[in-house]
Design a binder for these strands. Structure first.
Lengths: 180, 180
DNA sequence: CAGGATTATTTTACGAGTGAAACACTTGCT
DNA sequence: AGCAAGTGTTTCACTCGTAAAATAATCCTG
C-alpha cells in the first residue's frame, strides 16, 4: 500500500516535511513551535483515533469513557459540577453524556438531600465492571504502541511533557479553573 | 475535594494526580502510557483552546486556518483530495470548509480541464495576506508559551515527539492513507 | 466503442459539542 | 419572614464533523 519512491521505511515524520515547506516560503521565521506543538497535535489526533476505534465495540465515546474513568478513579460519588471540572468539559456536554450513560445503566444519579440542586453520580456494578475491563485493555494497547520507543526515551518524554503541561496549566488554564 | 498539603504554586501537573488516583485503585497496573499519552492529550486540548481563542477575532476556525496554511506552504494549487490528505480530515469536512473560505473570498476554485472532476484550489490575495499575517502571530504566541521551558528541554521534547509521531504514523496511520 | 469499474467530489442525515438562557434550588441580607 | 443574589444543572438553538450515499467524470477492457 505504500511503495512510494525509493524512500527509506520511516525516515521522517510528517511535521518535518511541513516545517521544510514553511522554511522555503518564509525563510527566517522561527518554526520551533511547530516542531513541538504541531507534533503534539498530530500525535494526539492519531492516538485519539486509535482510542476511538478501540472503544467503538463497547458502544462508548472517548468522552463517555473519560467520565466512567473519572468516577472509577475518584472512588466516591462525584457531582455533575465536579465531573465537569475533572473532565475539562462543558456543563452541557457532561449533562448529555450522563444521560446516555444512565440510559445504559452504567451510572446512577442520587439527588443530594441537603441541597436538591446537586446530583451525585456513581458507577453501577455494570459501569464499574466495564471500566475495570476496559482500562487495562486500553493501557495494554497504548503500551504496545509506545514499546517501539526505547524506555529511557519514553521516560524523558513523559517528564518533558509534564513540565510543559504544568506550564500550560498556568498560562492557559486560568479560565477553565481546573480545580485540580 | 483536595486536601493535599500546603500546596506550592505549581508543583504538579494534573496528570500526576490522576496517575496517583489510579495507582490507589488499581495498584500494580502499569500506568506509563497515561504519563505520556494522557499528557499529550491534555497539552493538545489546552494548546488548541489557545489557538482557537486567537483565531476567533479573524472569524476563522482552526481547521479552516489549517487549510489556508496548507495552501500557503505548498506554494501551488492543490486539489480537494490533496487537501483532504494533507489536513488529515474527511472529504466532507474539507468540502464544507472550502465553501466557507470561498464565500469569504479567501480561496478560489478552478476546475481542471483535462479531468473535470478535480478542483484546484488557490489562495486569493486576501487569503494569502491573511495567512501571512496570522501565521507569524500564531508562532509568536506559541513561542511565548514555550519560552517557560529551558531551550534544551524544548529541543529534546521536539525530538522525542518526532520519534513518537514517526512510530504512530507507522502503526496507526495505515487506514488514513496519508499519501504525503 | 459500450458498459462496468474506478476515482474525485459533494450531498444527506445525523450525532456530538457549545454558549447562553432557563430552571431550580439555597443563601444571605435586612 | 421575604426576597435579591448566587449556585448547580439542564435545555435550547446552533455549528461542526462524520459516514455513507449520490453525483459526475474518467478509465479500462473485451
Amino acid at each position: 500500500m505504500s511503495e512510494r519512491a525509493p524512500e527509506q521505511p520511516g525516515r521522517e515524520d510528517i511535521v518535518t516535511g511541513i516545517m521544510r515547506q514553511w522554511q522555503q516560503v518564509h525563510p527566517g521565521l522561527d518554526l520551533e513551535p511547530i516542531g513541538v506543538i504541531g507534533r503534539i497535535n498530530r500525535c494526539a489526533a492519531l492516538l485519539q483515533q486509535a482510542a476511538d476505534a478501540q472503544l467503538r465495540p463497547q458502544q462508548l465515546t472517548r468522552a463517555e469513557f473519560d467520565l466512567l474513568g473519572t468516577l472509577r478513579r475518584s472512588g466516591r460519588p462525584l457531582t455533575a459540577g465536579e465531573l465537569t471540572r475533572e473532565t475539562f468539559a462543558s456543563g452541557a456536554a457532561v449533562t448529555k453524556r450522563l444521560r446516555r450513560l444512565e440510559q445504559h445503566d452504567l451510572v446512577e444519579r442520587r439527588i443530594d438531600e441537603r441541597d436538591r440542586r446537586v446530583a451525585h453520580l456513581t458507577l453501577t456494578d455494570a459501569g464499574r465492571e466495564l471500566a475495570d475491563h476496559t482500562l487495562p485493555d486500553q493501557l495494554n494497547r497504548e503500551q504496545a504502541l509506545l514499546s517501539g520507543l526505547p524506555p529511557e526515551h519514553r521516560e524523558q518524554l513523559a517528564e518533558r511533557l509534564a513540565e510543559l503541561l504544568l506550564l500550560l496549566e498556568g498560562s492557559i488554564g486560568q479560565i477553565s479553573r481546573a480545580a485540580n
